[in-house]
Structure formats: structure tokens, C-alpha cells
Simulated assay, not measured.
Amino acid sequence: MKNKAIFLDRDGTINIDKNYMYKIEDFEFVENAVEGLKILYDLGYKLIIVTNQAGIGRGYYTEEDLEKLNKYMEDELVKSGIKIEKCYFCPHHAEHGIGKYKKDCECRKPKAGMLLEGIKEFDIDVTKSYMIGDKMSDAKAGINANVKPIIVRTGKEITKEIEESGIEVYSSLYEFAIKLKNKSEN
């Protein structure tokens, strides 16, 4: 049987978005995000992070810096009984990337490359899966990968494009998790 997954944007969805953040001391979970992730994990969803990290491409920090931060986040979540299956990241930027990072790739959201990789690697049933993020590019990546998009209000401003899109918007990851839990109990 295939697995169900929650694909998650990181900055603005799981942690407070601080531009080009890579230092552990700057990392701060969004209020109730850990509790929301625990609910989703306990409902049997594989939790997979898909995050654009143009700060690497711009030379602000390294892939190693990002991996250290992601490991810190994963270790903190393990303490609450939550397993992140994998953190996929896109270091590229077609316009502002430097060197090998300056390219128009298939992984940068709104393209679906990271999600498609996760779907394949973890044998995901897209009909039972979601993409949660705080921007339209997150939602579009979900749509492009055939998973249901969800927008949360804990990061970037909700744009007119989002309001008019018909995509479900929640105040937070936690609010969405509660709704999904209640739905699964009925």
C-alpha cells in the first residue's frame, strides 16, 4: 500500500521566516507548529520538507550550513516524537544564483521537482497527500505534483492571487492539522 504524505515548506510554515536564515540561534518554530506536526505524524502521514534556499545560490550561506540547521530542527522534532522523512532543498536561482547555482532548474518551487522526487522515493499516494506552505509558489508546486495545496497565514502575506485561487487557507499548520484530525475521526 502506498504512503500518504504532507509536503511542507519550511520558512514561514514550520519556523518563523527570517530572510536567508541559516544560523541555529535564529531558528524559532512558528507557534504550535510542533503540535501540528505531531498530529499529522500521528495520523500516519510521512512528513517531507521541500524548501527553496536561494541563499545558498546567492552565496549567503553553504549547503553544509543548511544541513546543520535542518539537522537541528529534525533533532528538536524527534524530542516530540516526530520524524521528518527527508528535507529536500533547492539551492538554485535562475537570476541571482552564483556559479553552479545560477540555473533554471526543475526543483525550485513552483516547479514540482522536489515533490516528485519525494513521491518516488517514499512511494507516496498523491490522492491522499498535501503540500502546505505560506506562498502561492508552494501551492503551485503542490498542484504541479498533483497533491492538494494548503496555504497557512504564518509566513508571507496572503496575496490577492491566493484569495482568488480557491485554495484552502488556514491560520496555521496547527489549525490545518486539527481540521484533518477531526475529519479523520468522522
Score class of each variant (00 low, 15 high):
residue 103 K to H: 06
residue 20 Y to W: 11
residue 49 I to C: 14
residue 46 K to S: 00
residue 122 F to G: 09
residue 75 D to W: 02
residue 105 C to A: 00
residue 16 I to A: 11
residue 15 N to C: 10
residue 98 I to N: 08
residue 45 Y to A: 06
residue 37 L to D: 13
residue 139 A to L: 00
residue 37 L to I: 13
residue 2 K to I: 00
residue 60 Y to W: 09
residue 7 F to R: 00
residue 142 G to Y: 01
residue 48 I to W: 05
residue 42 D to K: 05
residue 133 G to D: 12
residue 118 G to N: 05
residue 32 N to Q: 14
residue 75 D to H: 05
residue 76 E to A: 12
residue 33 A to G: 08
residue 27 F to E: 06
residue 140 K to A: 10
residue 136 M to A: 04
residue 77 L to P: 01
residue 159 T to I: 01
residue 183 K to V: 01
residue 4 K to N: 13
residue 88 Y to W: 11
residue 7 F to L: 06
residue 27 F to P: 01
residue 172 S to G: 10
residue 117 E to N: 12
residue 84 I to Y: 03
residue 62 T to F: 13
residue 72 Y to F: 15
residue 10 R to S: 11
residue 147 V to R: 02
residue 101 Y to T: 03
residue 33 A to I: 04
residue 138 D to G: 02
residue 135 K to T: 15
residue 58 R to H: 08
residue 150 I to W: 13
residue 23 K to P: 13
residue 104 D to P: 03
residue 133 G to Y: 12
residue 178 I to R: 09
residue 142 G to K: 05
residue 37 L to G: 06
residue 37 L to F: 09
residue 138 D to R: 02
residue 90 C to V: 01
residue 145 A to W: 05
residue 35 E to C: 05
residue 31 E to M: 10
residue 161 E to W: 06
residue 133 G to H: 09
residue 155 G to Y: 00
residue 139 A to K: 01
residue 104 D to Y: 12
residue 28 E to N: 14
residue 135 K to E: 11
residue 167 I to P: 03
residue 93 H to M: 09
residue 58 R to W: 04
residue 160 K to F: 11
residue 118 G to C: 02
residue 28 E to G: 07
residue 149 P to V: 11
residue 20 Y to P: 05
residue 31 E to C: 09
residue 152 V to K: 00
residue 29 F to S: 12
residue 147 V to I: 07
residue 73 M to S: 13
residue 56 I to V: 08
residue 44 G to T: 02
residue 171 S to V: 11
residue 149 P to C: 11
residue 102 K to G: 09
residue 128 K to G: 12
residue 4 K to Y: 08
residue 127 T to P: 06
residue 102 K to V: 04
residue 11 D to Q: 11
residue 138 D to P: 07
residue 43 L to W: 05
residue 136 M to Q: 00
residue 99 G to Y: 08
residue 145 A to M: 11
residue 52 N to G: 01
residue 114 M to P: 12
residue 31 E to K: 15
residue 165 S to R: 10
residue 78 V to P: 00
residue 124 I to S: 04
residue 37 L to V: 13
residue 91 P to F: 14
residue 19 N to W: 01
residue 74 E to K: 14
residue 177 A to I: 01
residue 67 E to H: 08
residue 97 G to H: 07
residue 10 R to M: 04
residue 74 E to N: 15
residue 140 K to T: 04
residue 4 K to R: 15
residue 65 D to Y: 07
residue 175 E to S: 12
residue 71 K to A: 15
residue 109 K to L: 07
residue 160 K to S: 15
residue 161 E to G: 02
residue 25 E to R: 09
residue 47 L to V: 10
residue 145 A to D: 02
residue 47 L to T: 04
residue 105 C to Y: 00
residue 162 I to H: 04
residue 163 E to L: 15
residue 150 I to A: 11
residue 150 I to C: 11
residue 77 L to G: 06
residue 2 K to H: 10
residue 98 I to P: 03
residue 172 S to L: 10
residue 184 S to E: 15
residue 141 A to M: 10
residue 85 E to Q: 13
residue 97 G to I: 07
residue 57 G to V: 06
residue 144 N to M: 09
residue 10 R to N: 11
residue 46 K to G: 00
